[in-house]
Simulated scan of single mutants.
Amino acid sequence: MACTEEYLHEFLGGGYVADICLWRNQNISLSMLIGSTVIWFLLEVVECYFIPLVCYVLILMMIMLFLWSNGAGIFNSMKGPPGFDEIKLSESTCEQLLASGFSVMSSCFSSLTFIYIVFLCFGTLPIVYMRYKGAVNYFLSKSNEEIENCFQMVKSNILDKIPRVKEKSI
């Protein structure tokens, strides 16, 4: 099946998140990427503590929502603050996250770095693939051939030399 932008959009959920991953709105995608990099930098490199940082962010969000809701009343042309009843997370999404080996991967390095790498991959890999589809497909096919050659070499040099116990017919 040919991998078109529409197929990738549907594969990523076909909604707002897919639009961000495919960089259809470059300002939002870039701000998400920069924001996650700043958070990772603060927590991993500068070693800020997580709880105070979350509290500061929540206080800033409360101030922004307060100013937004009061400013919308003063200026009639402003749109009101967003409703929080629109945020939903399905049970299948949670199950997929738990079943994907989250704990195994995060044992190799810090959980925050793992989450940042996953976010970075979701933010950049779809658009990189769309732009350099031919080169990526060529590289993946060559990598697949190399893996198959290595497997055949291991099979012929090691696995085929292991004596097998033959079952006797009764």
Rank of each mutant, 00 (worst) to 15 (best):
E86N: 11
L65P: 06
L159A: 13
I170D: 14
K161P: 06
M130I: 03
F109G: 04
P52E: 01
K88Q: 05
T4E: 11
L65R: 08
Y7V: 09
W23Y: 11
L67Y: 13
T113P: 01
S90Q: 04
A2C: 03
L43M: 00
Y116E: 10
I87Q: 00
V118K: 11
F102N: 07
L67S: 11
E91W: 14
F119L: 15
N27H: 10
S110T: 12
G35H: 00
C3E: 12
M1E: 11
S92V: 07
F102K: 04
Q96S: 12
G73T: 00
L112G: 05
F50I: 09
K155R: 15
L42E: 02
L53W: 06
G80T: 10
N149P: 00
C150R: 07
P81I: 03
L125P: 05
L159H: 05
M153W: 15
R164F: 08
S143T: 06
C94E: 15
T124S: 12
I28L: 11
S77Y: 11
S92I: 00
L12W: 03
C108V: 08
Y129H: 00
A18M: 00
R131G: 06
A72H: 03
F119I: 10
I34G: 01
P126A: 01
K142Y: 03
N149A: 12
G73Y: 04
F139W: 01
L140T: 07
L12E: 05
D19C: 07
V165N: 10
A72R: 07
V104M: 13
Y16K: 15
N144M: 11
P163E: 15
I170V: 10
T37E: 05
S77D: 09
R131C: 04
I28A: 08
L8P: 02
Q152G: 02
T37S: 14
